[in-house]
Design a protein around this nucleic acid. Sequence first.
DNA 1: GTGAAAGCGCTAACAC
DNA 2: GTGTTAGCGCTTTCAC
Lengths: 335, 335
Amino acid sequence: MIDVAREADVSAMTVSNVINGRPGVSADTRARVLAAVSKLGYQMNLAARHLRSGRTGAVGLIVPDLDGMYYAQLADRLARSLERHGQHLALVRTGASRERELEAVSVGRLRMYEGAVISLLQVEAADLERLSFDTPAVFIGERPVPETVDHVMMDNVGGALLATRHLLSTGSRRIAIIGGSDDDRVRDMSTLRTRGYRQAHAELGVEVDEGLVLRIDSFTPKGGYQALTRLRESGVPFDGVFTLTDAAALGVLRALADVGLRVPGDVQVIGFDNGTETDFLTPRLSSVEPGNDVMAETVLDLLQRRMGLAGAGEDGEPRTHTMVPARLALRESTR
Amino acid sequence: MIDVAREADVSAMTVSNVINGRPGVSADTRARVLAAVSKLGYQMNLAARHLRSGRTGAVGLIVPDLDGMYYAQLADRLARSLERHGQHLALVRTGASRERELEAVSVGRLRMYEGAVISLLQVEAADLERLSFDTPAVFIGERPVPETVDHVMMDNVGGALLATRHLLSTGSRRIAIIGGSDDDRVRDMSTLRTRGYRQAHAELGVEVDEGLVLRIDSFTPKGGYQALTRLRESGVPFDGVFTLTDAAALGVLRALADVGLRVPGDVQVIGFDNGTETDFLTPRLSSVEPGNDVMAETVLDLLQRRMGLAGAGEDGEPRTHTMVPARLALRESTR
DNA sequence: GTGAAAGCGCTAACAC
DNA sequence: GTGTTAGCGCTTTCAC
């Protein structure tokens, strides 16, 4: 930078002002500086800026993994939007390990970012109370978070309620839930969606046969396939399947085809996520649309706002807790 | 850090040495320092370290997007492996824009990272020659790269050759290629796989009807569906389909089902990517396994090696250009 | 509108 | 084994 300053015959300060587009530099001087910059091919040292001003130009995304579509799409959306603000996304993958989650949200790590989008699976809200969030942070996901931070989540219960209600209202009475959970102490995607499933049954006065609640190893086609195979082997009769993710539903559809059950004739099936593949499966899969795009927008909006007034009004706006509404996308696999 | 030094009654230098696990500190002093660190809840300022020592603890991943499975999985693998080395992944999404690709690989930006994994779609090798890669970089993807950098790529031509050869050897003579390209000037996934397709035909002396080479808007189920619909409408007969990605193959299978063509009886179908869904489609989709896991390993290995001897032997090892071999994963959609 | 001085928090190099 | 000195490249502050 001093080289540029010498070349343009100004001080380093003026170069800094020009580069950062600050006002109060004459057009003449600005032009000279810019000429010098491009002549010398000068590039800012971002580490120095970071050290001095605290601005890092990075937003952290702290998630369990990226191999599912969900977080990958979120990352893509965030990165795309951040580019427009001249920032970039730093990815922290915790692998859903409690230890790494805690490490990732430690004050020192968060200081690396001007803002953070955080999805925790293991860490408790209590663990977080202690942390001072001087870094603007937006939490996503189903786990409870401290009251003091922004939180955006999808409507797991509501979506599951809609899906199950639809199956019940179209005549199914014995609806299996693939990936369901009976443990109501924890609060995760599985238990929340199971709660919606039970609520729908309660509304219509239909009793849930616990033999229809099937745990799953992983929310993959394979997991869905195995769960449905177990269900068949158990001998428990069923005439509908609510699969907690579309990926697992793929395996369910395949397993049903393998045993000659027709969809939706013998069994109707509904998934959750409304992925791009649903419309091209055989049969086309009905699914719950969780509004991921709205969710990403909301997260970004919140984050930008917090980052904008960082240091301005002390905790200006109150923290928001948003639930993005879900809706049904009905196709051939349901009646 | 000075606070810690004062608390432990040592110099800042010693604190630095302890924190960075450098040898030459007595066990006694080390203990005192660590006690002071935890007492004061001290966390290193990484920006300062970065400025002073150049170490950033970050590896950059520069890719077009993350919404396809391919780069998302790569990101996941990289992040997972980097964690073990106490580093993290910074994501740069270029959106396949030439301008942003150039910006991302500029010297200033790359200096943010201790290493980089780079996939460029638009930028030419010539543009890159100028860049001094003081940052260890591994390039991936099909575009040509300067001779001076490491390059890892999948065997697009070989995989397509295997797939097409299999269709031909099992009796297909009129094989449509969905997502094919006739433009041989550029060098991208589509043209390379088309080249393999043509090679297989040449080997067996079968002529390619250009009406069977179908461009595609996007490598999605929708794109595949539309392409196959166009093919049907064109009236060009076909008895096999090589779809350049599994995602598009999903749409192809659906389109074939819609018009009552049986797979593999009337038409056999093969995809490319060997995704997790292939084994659960109806019919189960044969596909080309591109060896993405081997590829990720190779990339990581190369990167670690380059980063390890950064500054050591001047450009110690010669640059490597690796082609990961592909193989067939045959299932129900082929004979 | 522009510049000079000071210092962000750490570590390389060397002295003891 | 431990301390001292200097400085990484920028920006904040204040003077002109």
